[in-house]
Design a binder for these strands. Structure first.
Length: 552
RNA sequence: UGUCCUAUGGUGUAAUGGUAACACAGCAGAUUUUGAUUCUGCUUUUCUAGGUUCGAAUCCUAGUAGGACAACCA
């Protein structure tokens, strides 16, 4: 099948580079800073970077951009590696910007020797004042004309730890009147007497992003350095460093980051949600983190498919979260074993079924594979969903109501003969009769019913907990917010049902398995589960045309 | 009142100077022992104004709108 798939703009650039002979193979990198957990926005970048290398026969490095010791931790490194692997990608090399600190230092010395960098004693306030504004040029620092010799000594002393944090920086000497603010003598190195997660206390000066990223790309001979749009203005500085250092010319290309409705995807704010306990952790199933959606029951296949469908372009976007849910359902529908679980039980007594009798019914695990079945006990007393009975049925309601019949999935057709109410008027019990000839598989009753409902046998039902999730925020476009994002948390984002009734087979569930609870949604076992108490997370609901019908 | 980036249905993404298409969402119907799945059909689109051209979503100019840029963050 020669499926003609159109190329995104980066693929076009790569194919052009390959065709023209500029490159014979490509190298990309995924460069997270280990200061938080990966989220769906990172997934887009991961799929892009690794996907490109896979498609064009190149390689992708995993490179940690660890140039700021105060925010970075080993915990994050480990989670990031786990998430990339879970998504299904394998990096060529695991690298760290901190591995390049010695070389980066030498690069800085080279720039000083060329008269292209100087040590500045200005305070950050003074530097900000010198910087100008986007519409007004900046002014030169009084330290700008220090000699090469003086700068060399000062920079060496910075490295040697002779100065306190913030007292000096190394700046590039470019142009304080440049229209690109980033070219107004950007800071290259700053002093931080801080412990680094890998280099420990070896260094007290650390390179800034702009002095580390491009050079790291260059050292690794990355051909296409792909990042998000906010780095567009950095490209000029990226190229300036490479040009003046005369090193391998990696090239930067920028695409639009993923934005999704009802979703907040800023690492800083996600950290805030974690720290301030609005969620239980980075892997809270409501979080858009990869560890969160994994725990919730999303699959890597679904996320890769999603990343594929959203495309890659340069314009700002706001993806409808229903596309993600569609991808999740589409994959889960194929792989999830079916189970029956009653959430809000209503007792049903089959009055014409012998007391004490239990028989075994079989039900298919997957709708289109009738050979793959499990066993389910059936008895005189059952639970069905309270929702599946209406004393006074609304129009088009084809479940149970007085005198009406439904099919119990994989069992018998039953007819509602009577119901019992308590003092409050709440229905507590249904009295039904079953049609013995209607047994699933050899139904000779000739009766056709429209409604099919799920059920569990009361005697053998297994109590489990389910956790139902809704969107964390109730604002469609989080970027439109003018006040604090924490004011817009959805109070109903988590609903716990401590005791619901499952068919016995579900007790065998293992971590990582996916289930469809018939008519209730897709579920997976939560990591909080213990041997005595199984807890299931709802990944997503099923599509529900009836709910829409009812709304009308 | 600077520089840069962007502009195609409700949301995304294609169409690479030659009939604007695909997916999601929405709506309607068929099938169904999950009101699921599956299948069918439908609604809705090139920011504006000029220009180049036989022909413009595509190229050019201007305007408009949105976004980015003034961290010793990445």
């Amino acid at each position: 099948m020669a499926e003609e798939k159109s190329l995104n703009f980066i693929e076009e650039i790569i194919e052009h580079d390959l065709k023209s002979g500029k490159h014979t193979s490509i190298a990309t990198r995924f460069p997270p800073e280990p200061n938080g957990y990966l989220h769906l926005g990172h997934a887009k970048s991961i799929c892009l970077n690794f996907g490109l290398a896979l498609k064009y026969g190149g390689k992708t490095n995993l490179r940690f951009d660890d140039t700021n010791p105060v925010t970075e931790e080993t915990e994050y490194v480990e989670s990031i590696k786990g998430d990339v692997k879970w998504l299904g990608f394998q990096w060529a090399e695991e690298l760290y910007a901190s591995d390049y600190f010695p070389q980066l230092y030498e690069f800085a010395v080279t720039l000083i020797k060329k008269g292209l960098a100087y040590v500045d004693d200005s305070t950050s306030e003074e530097m900000a004042a010198q910087k100008g504004t986007p519409t007004q040029p900046g002014t030169n620092s009084p330290y700008r004309n220090r000699t090469v010799e003086e700068n060399l000594v000062l920079f060496a002393d910075m490295k040697a730890g002779k100065y306190p944090d913030g007292s000096k920086v190394l700046r590039a000497k470019i142009d304080m009147a440049h229209t690109n603010m980033l070219m107004r003598d950007p800071v290259l190195y700053r002093i931080k007497h801080a412990h680094h997660h890998r280099t420990g206390n070896t260094w007290c000066i650390y390179p800034m992003y702009d002095f580390a990223h491009g050079q790291s790309d260059s050292i690794e001979k990355i051909t296409h350095s792909i990042c998000t749009l906010e780095f567009v203005p950095h490209r000029e500085l990226y190229n300036w460093c490479i040009d003046n250092l005369e090193i391998y010319p990696s090239r930067q290309y920028e695409f639009a980051r993923l934005n999704m409705t009802y979703t907040m995807m800023s690492k800083r704010k996600l950290l805030q949600l974690v720290n301030e306990k609005y969620v239980t952790g980075w892997d809270d199933p409501r979080m858009p983190t990869l560890s969160g959606v994994r725990r919730r029951g999303y699959t890597p296949e679904a996320i890769r498919d999603f990343c594929d469908r959203i495309g890659v372009a340069k314009r700002d976007n706001l993806i409808d979260i229903s596309l993600l849910e569609f991808c999740v359902r589409e994959h889960l529908n194929k792989i999830a074993a079916r189970r029956m679980v009653v959430f809000d039980p209503l007792k049903v007594v089959i009055t014409n079924y012998p007391e004490g009798k239990t028989e075994i019914m079989t039900s298919e695990n997957y709708p289109d594979d009738h050979a793959n079945v499990r066993e389910m006990p059936f008895g005189r007393e059952l639970y069905i969903e309270r929702e599946d009975f209406m004393e006074v049925p609304v129009k088009k309601y084809f479940r149970l109501s007085p005198g009406q019949m439904v099919r119990l999935k994989s069992a018998f057709i039953i007819k509602c003969d009577d119901f019992v109410k308590d003092a409050n008027g709440t229905v507590t019990e249904l009295h039904c009769s079953y049609i013995p000839e209607s047994r699933s598989g050899n139904d000779t009753s000739g009766i056709n019913v429209k409604g099919v409902i799920h059920w569990v046998n009361a005697q053998t039902a297994v109590p489990v907990e389910v956790r139902l999730y809704d969107r964390l925020f109730h604002v469609e476009d989080m970027s439109s917010l003018e006040d604090d994002f924490r004011n817009h948390l959805n109070p109903d984002s988590l609903k716990v049902l401590p005791t619901v009734y499952a068919e016995p087979e579900l007790a065998k569930a293992k971590l990582g398995e996916h289930f469809q609870f018939l008519r209730m949604g897709y579920f997976t076992l939560d990591t909080d589960s213990t041997a005595g108490k199984l807890i299931f997370n709802r990944a997503t609901t099923l599509r529900d045309m009836w709910a829409k019908e009812v709304k009308k």
